[in-house]
Design a protein around this nucleic acid. Sequence first.
DNA 1: ATAGGGTCTCCAGTAGATGGAAGGTCAAGG
DNA 2: CCTTGACCTTCCATCTACTGGAGACCCTAT
Lengths: 127, 127
Amino acid sequence: MNISSAAMAAGLSVKTVRYYADIGLVKAPARSTAGYRTYDDVTVRKLVFIRRSRAFGFTIEECRELLGLYQDQTRTSAEVKRIASKRLEEIEEKQRELQSLRDELAHLVTSCRGDHRPDCPIIDYLG
Amino acid sequence: MNISSAAMAAGLSVKTVRYYADIGLVKAPARSTAGYRTYDDVTVRKLVFIRRSRAFGFTIEECRELLGLYQDQTRTSAEVKRIASKRLEEIEEKQRELQSLRDELAHLVTSCRGDHRPDCPIIDYLG
DNA sequence: ATAGGGTCTCCAGTAGATGGAAGGTCAAGG
DNA sequence: CCTTGACCTTCCATCTACTGGAGACCCTAT
């Protein structure tokens, strides 16, 4: 399978697939005589795994760790849960941040008349 | 005022204050005979303005725009409101994203026993 | 033979800083 | 006067996770 088929199958861009091999996230694929990368299904499945992990916001390093666990028959679900819980915590922290940000900004936006005059509570707040 | 006092007063790091002048977000400060940057209160107030804007997640370019409006006596509050509303929309979009992410991840984490055994719904989902 | 795709490597750039090296400056204390 | 330590300078590199593009090579079809 050439890189574009692999990328398509994994739902990633060709650039990204190459990048993941460059940084050693998946192992370097075999090459055709012309030097083209040839991907197998196993690697494509790993690429899909990475895409889904990234969608949850796991960093590349976390993906590396998760991928290691994915392939490790002796893993414990506790290890996986620890990583996922950490990410969940981060998401929830971010949500709290965004919530207070939103409330504050929404308040300012609401109180701004948005007309042709220069006086503006948003600018006042920032300045 | 030397750069560290200005940074302190603005609530930013020295590096960041220098950076904001480098990219032309605030005008390049005057220099002492030794070449030290000397900041005045007006610039410090702008730095504070930028810090607060950044805290809302406005990009540097948006900060540039907001700062322009801040200094423009002929601004209209409509312009300010437009920029702020756009940011508010983005925040709310991000909130929706995070919410569905959180729900999904929370579900997986909850259903994972987190024990010494390898079987794990989180890994299953990703793979 | 040629046209069009696909692929290769390598380099640069994105946002918004931050870290560090090498060297100049300043004020206080001995 | 000299040293010490804190501050300042410039410049370059690094971070995250890719993405874009140039120039060259390869493959298939007509």
